[in-house]
């Protein structure tokens, strides 16, 4: 198991590459989904304001 994490001496290059990939994938998945939810809430609030006028 330690051999696996050592990556034959290249751990300092292999794991940051995989870590950054994970970060980019996570941000790409999370941010647009949050933006969509916020946008739907905002549009619903606008619609409600207009409806009550």
């Amino acid at each position: 198991m330690n051999d696996f994490f050592a990556m034959g001496g290249y751990a300092a290059f292999v794991w940051p590459a995989y870590g950054l990939t994970a970060v980019v994938l996570a941000l790409n998945a999370i941010l647009p989904c949050r933006r969509e939810r916020a946008l739907l809430r905002q549009l619903a609030a606008e619609a409600k304001r207009q409806g009550s006028q």
Partner: peptide, 13 residues
């Protein structure tokens, strides 16, 4: 050696 494993994240991106 093991450094080639970066290919699996580098080439797809």
């Amino acid at each position: 050696g093991e450094s080639f494993r970066i290919i699996y994240v580098h080439v797809p991106s």
